[in-house]
Amino acid sequence: MRAIRCHRYGPPDMLTLDELPDLQPQAGEVVIDVKAATVNFADVLIIENRYQLKPPLPFSPGAEVAGVVRATGEGVTRLKPGMRVVAYVAHGGHAEQARAAANACVPLPDDAPFDIAAAFSLTYGTSYHALADRAALKAGETLLVLGAAGGVGLAAVEIGKALGARVIAAASSEAKLAVCVEHGADATIDYATDDLRERIAALTDARGPDVIYDPVGGVYTEPAFRSIGWRGRYLVVGFANGEIPKLPLNLALLKGASIVGVFWGEFTKREPEREAAAFVEMTGWIRSGKLRPFVSAHYALEEAAQALNDIAARRVVGKVVITP
């Protein structure tokens, strides 16, 4: 089988396309013939050795896959070869085959597109955990989503609306903001033309948002946090800007505000029952049309480096997938 491999840490152009033996499942695992694997900013960080997960070299990036079960390991009874599944694998997905823990696999109906299924688990799981669980976002509150046109950002826009919030989307171009509006945003902020603090004040009657969802970090964090409302909750989701910001803690004191960490991967390990319940609710929202995962581009396996470069350069709207 073919796989994208990281032999030494560095930028995406250092990745290689290798021919490897077919994978064999260990006890409690399945091997999946990958039909679609998503590309996330975390994949860029992991190959550059800037992520909390550090698999031993060499490895394949790619955290989410959808495909068909090829083989099952000892003790696996719920899944059978030939079943369609989606799985969170943490790494190893950018390949023709991937190994996954059986309990990390969710069976797919026959009519579920593989690319849409793969695009769902990490982004929507992260955003639901952030908004519904960590922030306890309530109907009628105001949510500001930074980096709103990216994968997790667009998911946050949709989930915020599903929870009954008023959603303000912030992104770096009119084209990206147009996609946010299509997915439910009530108001927008364009980083390229708007003063962030002035625009937040204008859109909230100077009260500030109740919840801020930040997967970007960098230069936007402090001005956004200075604009948060009384008892606001600032969700630390990621650092797509590349810079981990530092905040003066007196700002939290003055607003009675909370800085709330969001680590979905650890949450799924420590609280799997709550995560399962979240996906039950979100599945219902998909059926009702409240959630519409958006895949904007497909790449061949040979184009994985380009896909990662596009993610790193913030040229991506929604989600992109690799189709081996």
Rank of each mutant, 00 (worst) to 15 (best):
M1T: 09
R2M: 08
P11D: 04
L15M: 06
L20M: 14
L20S: 07
P25V: 00
V30Q: 11
V31Q: 10
I32T: 08
V34L: 14
K35S: 13
K35V: 05
A36S: 14
V39F: 08
N40S: 13
N40H: 15
L57T: 12
L57G: 12
L57N: 09
P58Q: 07
G62W: 05
E64K: 08
A66V: 06
G75T: 05
P81Y: 02
G82R: 09
H91F: 15
H94P: 03
A104S: 13
A104Q: 14
P107A: 12
P109F: 09
A112N: 03
P113V: 09
D115W: 09
A117Q: 11
F120K: 11
L122T: 14
T126Y: 04
T126G: 07
S127K: 11
A130W: 01
K138A: 15
E141C: 06
V145Q: 06
V145L: 09
E158N: 02
L163P: 02
A165E: 01
A170G: 12
S173G: 05
E174L: 05
C180T: 02
I189W: 00
A192W: 00
T193M: 00
D194P: 03
D195L: 04
I200Q: 01
I200C: 04
T204D: 01
V216C: 11
V219L: 03
W230Q: 07
V236S: 01
F239R: 09
G242I: 08
P245T: 08
K246E: 13
A252Y: 09
S258N: 13
F263A: 14
F263D: 14
G265N: 09
T268Y: 01
T268E: 00
E271G: 00
E273V: 10
V280R: 15
R292D: 09
Y299T: 11
E302L: 01
Q306M: 11
D310K: 12
I311F: 01
I311W: 03
R315W: 05
V316A: 05
